[in-house]
């Protein structure tokens, strides 16, 4: 058992799987000697060599496309994209190729790659570094979209993503890369994908979130508990495919739901959860589903990002609203 931050857990999972499986190749920009801009790959090239931990030319489309080719040959490439703002030139490769290679060839060729990228705001980063556009990927058939929110989950979920036979977009909330330390057992044990994680059980309201926002969501739940409100907190973890049943079951119990995410509201992933609740859980609801999200604005530069990100107070206010409804 070692105490680790989330980014250290990512590093440990990468190291574990590089060691366990010769087919695993880590590639990206500045991930070798430099150890990655967030140091997620620190020490890996030194330990596993330049063939396994590969600095690429500065070309994101290339990196994603190369990973598709490697994966089709049975390798397990793990791509690091430095920031979410640089991920968009990979979308052609992810949407047109990685996510559909198995389907196009009826299983003759497959694409077991992982595309890792830090995402979200809150670290006073430069322009184009702080967006949360996970919903874009959650819209793509054939893909998995996985977002950890703690060191232990980052470790186990990344291992699962690497071992998954299909492509996974693995988004790391960089705001909490070093926020907390947690005991992680570096034993190569993966955590299940395609399932929500209940972080806290409660009877009065269901709070659904993922990634960095879970930090504020859990703080809100703690504050509410002091006032006698018993909130259930669900970490969605795998946005695609969504384990909607866990959310429906929770709402069947609580009758109230608040979804929290950093991404812009319109067509954010919270809209999908609200729609699923409306389709399959309407009669269990005592109040409309509330969304506490980023605004439908361009992600502001860092002077205003604190105003953009969902706050503990906003979450508590939304919970009050659904509790007092009707």
């Amino acid at each position: 058992m070692t105490e680790m931050t989330l980014v250290e857990a990512v590093n440990s999972a990468l190291a574990y799987e590089l060691d366990a499986d010769d087919n695993v190749i880590v590639l990206g920009e500045d991930i070798g000697v430099n150890g990655g801009v967030f140091r997620a790959t620190v020490g890996l090239q030194e330990r596993f060599g330049e063939q396994r931990v590969l600095d690429t030319p500065l070309a994101e489309t290339l990196i994603a496309g190369v990973a598709v080719g490697m994966a089709a040959q049975g390798l397990r490439p793990i791509v690091e994209i430095q920031f979410m703002g640089f991920i968009y030139s990979t979308i052609d490769q992810i949407l047109n190729h990685a996510s559909r290679l198995r389907n196009r060839s009826h299983g003759r060729l497959t694409c077991p790659l992982v595309l890792r990228a830090p995402f979200g705001g809150g670290i006073h980063a430069p322009e184009h570094h702080s967006e949360s556009t996970e919903a874009i990927f959650a819209h793509i058939p054939g893909l998995r979209v996985v977002i950890p929110s703690s060191p232990a989950r980052a470790y186990g979920l990344l291992l699962a993503a690497i071992r998954d036979p299909d492509p996974v977009v693995f988004l790391e909330p960089k705001r909490i890369y070093r926020l907390v330390k947690q005991d992680v057992v570096d034993n190569g044990e993966a955590l299940p994908l395609d399932t929500c994680y209940i972080l806290r059980e409660g009877a009065d309201v269901t709070l659904v979130s993922w990634g960095g926002s879970l930090h504020e969501t859990q703080l809100a739940a703690n504050a509410l508990a002091v006032d006698g409100v018993d909130a259930e907190v669900i970490d969605v973890v795998t946005l695609k495919p969504l384990d909607v049943q866990t959310i429906l079951d929770s709402v069947a119990k609580t009758g109230r739901c608040v979804v929290v995410h950093e991404a812009a509201r319109t067509a954010g992933f919270g809209a999908e959860i609200a729609a699923q609740l409306a389709e399959h859980g309407l009669l269990n609801l005592y109040a409309p589903v509330r969304r506490v999200t980023g605004y439908d604005t361009v992600m502001p530069l860092y002077k205003l990002e604190g105003y953009y990100l969902p706050s503990v107070e906003q979450i508590i206010a939304a919970v009050r609203e659904v509790l007092e409804f009707g």
Binding site: G65, V66, V68, G69, M70, A72, G74, L75, Q93
Partner: peptide
């Protein structure tokens, strides 16, 4: 869009 796949395949062969 297929051209980078070829580099990945070639990379696997070389590896």
């Amino acid at each position: 869009s297929q051209i980078p796949h070829a580099a990945g395949v070639a990379m696997a062969m070389k590896y």
